[in-house]
C-alpha cells in the first residue's frame, strides 16, 4: 500500500491542482488576517469557508482522480499487489495531499501572524483537524460513488448532489423540521440529527469551541451542554472517525468484488 500511496501522492503533487489549492488557501489566509487584523475573528471567517469548500474540493478531487487514474488502476491490478491496497493507497494519496495543501496553506499565514503566541491556537488546530477530517470523509465518499458508477457523468452528478445535500439541503430540511415541530422538545432530536451530517457536526464543534454559541439560539444551550464538555468533544470526534472509517470500509469491500 505504501508504494501505491507514494505514487498517487507524487502524481498529485506534480499536477497543477494541488498547487492551485495550496495557493488559494495561502491567499485566503493572508487576506483574512489582513482584513480582520485579529486571529480569533479570522478563525471564525475561515471556518465558514472551510466548512463548505473543503467537502466540495474533496468530493470533486476524489471523483476526478478515480476516473482519471483508471488506466493506472488497471495496470496495477495485473501486478502482484493486493486489491484493497491499490484502492486504499490511491484514496490516501488524494486525501493526504489535499489535507497537506489545506494545513500548509492555512498554517503558514497564521503562524507568520503569530499564532503560537496567541490563545487562538487551540481553536485553529481544531479547525485544521476538522478540515482534515472533512477531506478524508468526502474523498472516501467520492471514491465510493466513483467505484459504483462506471459512467463518469453519472458519478460526477451524484458526487455534486452529495455535496449539495450535505452542505445545503440537509440544513434546510433540519430547519424545516425544527419549525414544524416547534411545540415539541427537539434538543435530543437535533443533537442526533447533527451526527448524520459531518459538515454540521464540524461546524457546531468549532462554533462551540469558539464560544459564540449564543448565535445558535435556544437549542444552543443544549448543544453547549453536550459539545462544550470533553465528552461531547470526544463523541463528535468519534463520530467523525466513524464517518471516515465506514466509507473506507465499503471502498475495500466493493473493490474486492468489482470486475475490471
Amino acid at each position: 500500500m505504501g508504494k501505491i500511496l507514494k505514487y498517487s501522492f507524487f502524481d498529485l503533487m506534480r499536477s497543477r491542482w494541488s498547487y492551485v489549492y495550496f495557493i488559494f488557501y495561502l491567499a485566503l489566509g493572508f487576506m483574512l488576517l489582513f482584513l480582520n487584523n485579529d486571529l480569533s475573528k479570522a478563525v471564525i471567517t475561515m471556518m465558514n469557508v472551510i466548512i463548505v469548500l473543503v467537502p466540495l474540493i474533496g468530493t470533486i478531487f476524489g471523483i476526478m482522480y478515480y476516473y482519471n487514474s483508471r488506466e493506472f488502476t488497471e495496470l496495477l491490478l495485473a501486478q502482484p499487489i493486493k486489491r484493497s491496497n491499490i484502492f486504499l493507497g490511491q484514496y490516501l494519496g488524494v486525501a493526504v495531499s489535499l489535507s497537506l495543501s489545506l494545513v500548509l496553506g492555512l498554517g503558514i499565514p497564521f503562524v507568520l501572524y503569530g499564532l503560537f503566541q496567541s490563545n487562538a491556537i487551540w481553536d485553529f488546530s481544531l479547525l485544521l483537524i476538522t478540515g482534515a477530517f472533512l477531506t478524508f470523509i468526502f474523498t472516501a465518499l467520492a471514491f465510493n460513488i466513483a467505484l459504483s458508477n462506471e459512467n463518469k457523468i453519472k458519478g460526477f452528478g451524484y458526487a455534486v448532489l452529495l455535496w449539495l445535500f450535505m452542505a445545503v439541503i440537509f440544513d434546510g430540511l433540519f430547519l424545516l423540521t425544527l419549525v414544524m415541530f416547534e411545540q415539541y422538545p427537539l434538543d435530543k432530536f437535533s443533537l442526533i440529527a447533527t451526527m448524520f451530517n459531518p459538515i454540521d457536526l464540524s461546524r457546531i464543534l468549532i462554533l462551540l469551541k469558539l464560544d459564540i454559541s449564543a448565535l445558535l439560539g435556544y437549542t444552543g444551550a443544549v448543544f453547549k451542554q453536550f459539545f462544550g464538555t470533553n465528552l461531547g468533544l470526544f463523541t463528535s470526534l468519534g463520530v467523525l472517525v466513524l464517518w471516515t472509517v465506514l466509507p473506507v470500509w465499503r471502498l475495500v469491500w466493493v473493490s474486492k468484488k468489482k470486475d475490471f
Binding site: D11, R14, S15, S69, R70, E71, F72, E74, L75, A78, Q79, P80, I81, K82, R83, K256
Partner: peptide, 23 residues
C-alpha cells in the same frame, strides 16, 4: 481466488495499451 501473490509469476500484456498519461 482472493489471492494475489501468484501474479508475481505472471507477465501480462493487456489488449489496449493504456498507461497513466502524465508519466
Amino acid at each position: 481466488r482472493e489471492s494475489w501473490k501468484y501474479r508475481q509469476k505472471i507477465n501480462y500484456m493487456p489488449q489496449i495499451a493504456q498507461f497513466p498519461g502524465n508519466l
